[in-house]
Nucleic acid binder design. Structure first.
Lengths: 142, 142
DNA sequence: TTTCCTGCAAACGATTTGCAGGAAA
DNA sequence: TTTCCTGCAAATCGTTTGCAGGAAA
């Protein structure tokens, strides 16, 4: 593993990768980041993108939104907030965090004697985005 | 794809696979289901498990909890409810659904002119389960 | 110099799929 | 018979990893 507490050295590629993730709202996967940077950094490899994204996750600079269509998607905005995922095209949209003191309250009782501790939560809404909805006129259940 | 609206035929293996998923609270992955049934159904193949699980998902008989440690995990209890996932061992626990009319209310305004429609939501809490917590005394941030 | 970073390509592992034979309708 | 189901094995595909050379400290 790429170390958890060992010293890090400066790397312009690492910087570039983080910058790309932080400066987009597309919630990219590794491949997207790679393709985005490849023109500017011709000797960049996909492995480096993966390695650095894992690093960012360990350091809390990037979070995983989840796996969409087999590909893990990331977010450079690490403040907790829910996401919307289009079931059709996989687009991911940030949603505003609904101040949820009440969620804690509502979960407090059922969680009271739970045999586990909670660190954080992920909420994802699924549906159709504005572009896909018109395309999918019928949503068959069977 | 294994058909969306074509006719289905009866299959005892399919029945067995669904029965296993429905009769456990372990939120199994395909491999687990396969290993569980293999002794009783020696000529079962992993591909069949995958194909049928996909079918169950299309029919709404099984839902995906998400990908944990690279493996997709399923739930035969399809009524909406949140889950807990142990960050250490990957164990998945069902959580009671907090009657959440209020969530709708709280999300209603920010969603008002959203350019998408929502079908359903998934909520997953992450933390350490009762077995792992004692093992992980220090949780390093860096 | 020592340690970390990276390209490269091979390895991995979960899931999918093409095909041919068998079962259900 | 026609259509669906399944075993098998090969193919996919996202992600990881071992290694050797290069860069940072």
């Amino acid at each position: 593993m790429m170390g958890t507490e060992m010293g890090r050295k400066h790397s312009s590629k690492r910087d570039a990768i983080l910058r790309v993730i932080q400066s987009t709202v597309s919630h990219p996967g590794a491949q997207w980041v790679y393709e985005r940077l490849k023109p500017q950094i011709p000797d960049l490899s996909l492995g480096t993108v993966y390695r650095n994204i894992n690093l960012f996750q360990e350091k809390g600079q990037v979070i995983s939104v989840g796996v969409v269509n087999g590909e893990e998607r990331f977010d450079g905005q690490v403040a907790p907030h829910p996401h919307f995922v289009c079931s059709c095209c996989g687009k991911i949209i940030d949603l505003p965090s609904p101040g949820d003191e009440t969620l804690k309250e509502r979960m407090a009782e059922p969680m009271e004697n739970a045999d586990f501790t909670i660190d954080y939560r992920k909420t994802v809404f699924y549906g159709l985005c504005g572009e896909c909805e018109p395309k999918v006129r019928f949503r068959l259940k069977e």
